[in-house]
Nucleic acid binder design. Structure first.
Lengths: 115, 115
DNA sequence: TCCTTATTTCGCCAAATGACGAAATGATAA
DNA sequence: TTATCATTTCGTCATTTGGCGAAATAAGGA
């Protein structure tokens, strides 16, 4: 029960849903997400830790970057059911489409450390 | 997006999940739910309004009681996907089983106005 | 080694949340 | 009509949440 509540809490924020929908495109580092969402790095880092604790995403340190990607969903039963639903949801939401367009072109070597 | 966040917020509380799992058994009035959850009537009423606003439940006034029941799920796309998932989840959770056992025997004419 | 860079953690603040009791509402029963 | 009962609304309070900037970490490059 506590786990299920944690999972729904993780989804109960629009910025975290935006992150999940961005990660459906490809793995991203913190500063790429920061660039798209226009939030501070510390705020994005917090959102990512909430999503990670809930099992939606996993992180992998590569050099000075941490790449975040969607979980396979095989580890957590609830996540395995919810991520496919989310994948089909919000297909026409303007904000999500614009986020994803930015994800397509963002370059971590250019956005990180500048804006 | 706003609607989806509202829906996840509605599920992001253990007492509201308990209510949904109780309503899987049968429709209930506020005071029956109050009796099982051991919360104040005003708190339960608030939880029910959040679930109703999100589309999970509907209410029907019958005499002096208001019967709450699970939505068919045909009205709201998200709810229609999530309620069936919830129906399969937490099948062995002790708290849910105990709530449901109470639902089986609770009598609104006995519990309302006393406890 | 020293400096830069990406990320996380910490401390703070404003707003939202979940709880309660008291008061208001609406319907039944006397 | 008057009293009772189920429910909702209101005001309050403690806790949680989501945001920020500053400081701490950790890795890379000069």
């Amino acid at each position: 029960m506590r786990e299920l509540v944690k999972i729904f809490k993780a989804l109960a924020d629009s910025n975290r849903i935006r992150i999940i929908k961005m990660l459906e495109i490809r793995p991203l580092c913190v500063c790429e997400i920061t660039d798209v969402l226009q939030l501070s790095a510390s705020t994005v880092s917090k959102h990512l830790s909430i999503l990670r604790e809930a099992g939606f995403i996993s992180d992998e340190k590569v050099g000075k970057w941490v790449n975040y990607s969607l979980s396979s969903g095989q580890l957590n039963h609830y996540v395995g059911s919810l991520l496919p639903l989310l994948k089909n949801w919000l297909p026409d939401e303007a904000l999500i489409l614009s986020d994803r367009a930015k994800v397509q072109v963002v370059d971590r070597n250019k956005v990180c450390g500048i804006g």
